[in-house]
């Protein structure tokens, strides 16, 4: 049953992707309710964050609990820049990516000394320190008061503040992120990450500069979170350090853990379910974190790789098509040398 469904999705994946994209494009036109539009926007932003963290968790196999720090760094960068210099949205995004990327580099540096378990702890400490700096460096971040009155999306000498504009802005960013991740996945860099995940010392022996790849991954993942942060700052127009806590990092991790490590559709599923379900089911919001905790435990016990973890629909499709080709073509040359065993 599950296998059949997975195969069906794999075969129809192009159709499903097209349908999803069209739905995403029409969403703000179909639903004019502000709450629903807001949910869609937040959901997309969490998808972006979860995709970014999945690069570290799913592809590289490194647990991290400090990712909200990059989100926050991006948000503060955009808020400070646009507030003090009136920069436009593109500049904010690039600056947020660069600053967050620089901090990602900083957090990546410890891989020179520690790995795995201990590195996870370092990320946790890093996240808390960044939050405390945001809370206390009042001159820069507004301290406990945060930064208020952040502008809308400034672009082409205009300021867009409508919910729809924000929705389409984050949609574009999510699409870009997805494309980047797919390209990484299907490249030498993707191979290197997966080999590091599976066995990093063997990867090193097979020619992978493990340290460099790990640091690079922290940088890219941090940049994605930073951009999401810049968007977030403009979207909600008021930020303070209470958004960028370890708990927020944990929520991002749980989205990936539920949806599936190393799986783009899985991440989207996990992020969507966990953002939307507590909001749409009345009375569930209070139990939100409790549910996250239960998911963490249950997933670890039952399916540690997540629902769609390491499920490669592209691969399943290739295999299925090949099997069919064999049946139809009557053993057309597939180059099989099945003489062994």
């Amino acid at each position: 049953m599950i296998k059949k469904t997975v195969e069906f999705i794999a075969l129809k994946q192009r159709f499903i992707i097209a349908a999803a994209v069209i739905f995403a494009l029409l969403y703000p036109l179909l639903f004019s309710d502000l709450f629903i539009l807001r949910m869609g926007t937040l959901c997309l932003m969490y998808i972006m964050l979860a995709l970014g963290i999945n690069l570290i968790m799913g592809y590289m196999g490194q647990m991290t609990f400090g990712h909200a720090a990059f989100w926050g760094i991006g948000a503060y960068t955009a808020a400070i820049l646009s507030g003090r210099f009136g920069t436009n949205f593109i500049v904010d995004i690039i600056a947020a990516a660069l600053v967050a990327g620089a901090f990602g580099f900083l957090l990546g540096l410890p891989v020179l000394k520690v790995k795995g378990y201990y590195l996870t702890i370092v990320t946790l400490g890093f996240g808390e320190i960044v939050r405390l700096v945001e809370l206390n460096a009042s001159g820069l971040t507004g301290g406990a008061l945060g930064i208020r009155g952040i502008s809308g999306i400034r672009l082409f000498a205009q300021e867009f503040t409508s919910p729809r504009a924000f929705y389409y802005a984050i949609l574009i960013l999510v699409v870009l992120t997805t494309v980047i991740l797919m390209r990484i996945n299907n490249s030498r860099y993707g191979l290197a990450l997966k080999s590091i995940r599976d066995d990093d010392s063997a990867a090193e022996v097979m020619g992978v500069n493990v340290v460099r790849n790990k640091i690079m991954t922290f940088v890219i993942s941090a940049m994605i979170a930073g951009v999401a942060g810049a968007f977030f700052a403009h979207y909600i127009s008021y930020i303070d350090s209470t958004s960028f806590t370890t708990q927020a990092s944990q929520e991002m991790c749980v989205m990936v853990i539920l949806g599936g490590l190393g799986s783009i559709p899985g991440t989207m599923l996990g992020a969507s379910v966990l953002t939307l379900v507590p909001e749409f089911i009345r009375g569930l919001a209070e139990y939100r974190m409790l549910i996250y905790g239960v998911i963490m435990v249950v997933m670890m016990l039952v399916r540690p790789q997540g629902l769609l973890g390491y499920t490669d629909f592209g691969l399943i499709r290739t295999r299925l098509l090949e099997e069919r080709g064999k049946k139809k073509g009557g053993g057309e040359n597939n180059g099989t040398t099945g003489t062994e065993g």
């Binding site: 609990f65 944990q250 996250y292 905790g293 963490m296 435990v297 997933m299 670890m300 016990l301």
Partner: peptide, 8 residues
């Protein structure tokens, strides 16, 4: 992750 979940 599991113990972190229990903590939560």
């Amino acid at each position: 992750i599991s113990t972190m979940g229990i903590a939560t």
